[in-house]
């Protein structure tokens, strides 16, 4: 941070979804790895244009849900049938039916935690300090502009050829972003 001007990547600005989608396909086909598309809203078909695999968030939610259901059942069994059994109206000390509603709610609760925190973990968020967030044009990304950023650390990156590729893909404006 103290040392000045280490390049982070090449940022290319686009005006519309059509151009950015096709530019993304070209960058994907050129074989880049450390690059990304930045958009104000998710664009339908962009995952395929970038060659992304299906998100893994589902596994986190599934693990959360399974944990929630098991926690609920075990907790109720242990509390009402083992640690302090009280007979109420001749009902069994533990019944999976009576224990189901709270366990069901815990399934949903922990599943939701899994989905949200899994998503944040996969996205490495929160991350309040990012080279792009300091870039003045990039503030438009949450407004109405679309960007492709190719990082300089990508093995295929070369200052001239990469810039040419983005120009040919229809970028309106290309700039180097500093770290």
């Amino acid at each position: 941070m103290a040392e000045p001007s280490k390049p982070y990547g090449l940022i290319a600005e686009f005006d519309n979804t059509t151009d950015v989608l096709h530019a993304a396909e070209k960058v994907r086909d050129a074989g880049f790895r450390r690059w990304d598309v930045f958009t104000p809203f998710p664009i339908h078909g962009m995952d395929r244009a970038m060659g992304l695999k299906n998100s893994k968030v589902g596994w986190f939610a599934f693990l959360g849900g399974a944990t929630g259901y098991t926690t609920g059942m075990l907790m109720i069994w242990w509390m009402n049938a083992v640690d302090y059994p009280i007979l109420v109206g001749g009902k069994p000390m533990f019944s999976p039916f009576g224990a189901f509603p709270p366990s069901y709610e815990l399934t949903i609760l922990f599943g939701a935690f899994g989905a949200v925190f899994g998503m944040l973990f996969l996205n490495r968020l929160p991350r309040l300090h990012h080279p792009l967030l300091k870039h003045r044009r990039f503030a438009q990304v949450t407004h109405d502009k679309f960007y492709i950023v190719i990082e300089t650390s990508d093995p295929k990156y070369s200052p001239d050829a990469t810039r040419k590729l983005l120009e040919a893909a229809g970028a309106r404006h290309i700039e180097l972003v500093e770290e």
Binding site: P42, M46, S55, V57, G65
Partner: peptide, 27 residues
């Protein structure tokens, strides 16, 4: 949380949103 609108993020985000919708419905 430092949201940048990255498509790699959107991909996970949309999946998480879909799952939350799927969980909220039985809820």
């Amino acid at each position: 949380l430092g949201w940048t609108g990255s498509n790699r993020h959107w991909s996970n985000y949309e999946k998480a949103y879909l799952i939350l919708a799927g969980l909220s419905t039985p809820l």
